[in-house]
Amino acid sequence: MRQPTEIGRSVMTWLNVLFDVVVIALATLTMAYIVYIMWRLVINSFNNFDVETVLHQIVLVIIFLEIFELLAMYIKDHHVSMRNVVELGVLAIVRKIVVTLDYSRIEWTTLVGMSLLMFVMGWIYVQERKRITQHEEFLMEHRGR
């Protein structure tokens, strides 16, 4: 097996730095968009209050906060938790089902497919929570040794 050369290591270091800069830029843009959505929510609520629009905007803010959390987690740990990704997916599907779907024009197969997708993501979420709990128990048992 070949050992990485000094040039290869330098290139990888610069690429990692560039990747971090891109993630920081995305996190900054995400937070700016969250502030913009919230500003629009306040302005639109004073002009003409529509419950459906307000609900749509609130769920959208929560989704973008989850995206921001994923980006911040990557900046800090260079790793993203599968649990957070699944939470984001469930939120996006809930938003689609609750807020934006017109049930009179949607086929039953689409609803079944989205339900199955939510079930699978929920199962993954539960499995991830169990795995984290087992890992925490292991750490607690072996911490004093």
Rank of each mutant, 00 (worst) to 15 (best):
T110Y: 12
V99T: 14
V112K: 00
T28D: 03
V85Q: 07
L18S: 14
L101D: 11
I7G: 15
F46V: 13
L15R: 06
L18D: 07
L101E: 08
M1K: 08
L29F: 12
K76V: 05
A32D: 11
D77C: 10
V59I: 11
E69D: 08
D50N: 14
I63T: 06
L111N: 00
I37L: 12
M121P: 02
W14N: 02
L117R: 01
V11A: 05
T133Q: 09
I43K: 06
V22I: 12
Y125S: 10
T53L: 01
I7C: 11
H135D: 10
I34C: 00
I124N: 01
I67V: 15
R131V: 09
F119V: 15
D102G: 09
N44C: 11
V85K: 10
H79Q: 10
V120H: 02
I75S: 09
L70F: 02
M31Q: 04
I7L: 08
V86G: 05
T5A: 05
N84T: 04
H56A: 12
H78D: 06
R2M: 15
P4M: 15
N16E: 10
S45F: 06
D102Y: 13
A72I: 12
R40G: 06
A25K: 02
A72Y: 09
T109I: 06
V126W: 04
R131A: 09
R105A: 12
E136P: 02
L116E: 02
F46Y: 15
N47S: 07
F119Y: 10
S104R: 09
F19T: 01
S115L: 03
W108H: 02
V61I: 15
L111D: 01
V126Q: 04
E69W: 12
I97R: 01
L26I: 06
L101F: 13
V85I: 14
I58A: 13
V23W: 00
L65W: 13
L116H: 05
R95H: 14
M121I: 01
R83S: 07
T28Q: 05
H56R: 13
F19Q: 03
W123V: 08
N48V: 01
V54F: 03
F68C: 07
V23C: 04
E6I: 11
R2P: 06
F19M: 00
F64C: 14
T13S: 05
R131P: 07
E66F: 10
H79T: 13
V22K: 06
T110S: 09
V21E: 06
G8Q: 14
I124V: 04
R105L: 05
V59P: 00
A72G: 14
V22E: 02
L26E: 12
R129W: 06
V22A: 02
E107W: 00
Y103F: 15
H56Q: 08
M121W: 00
L29W: 03
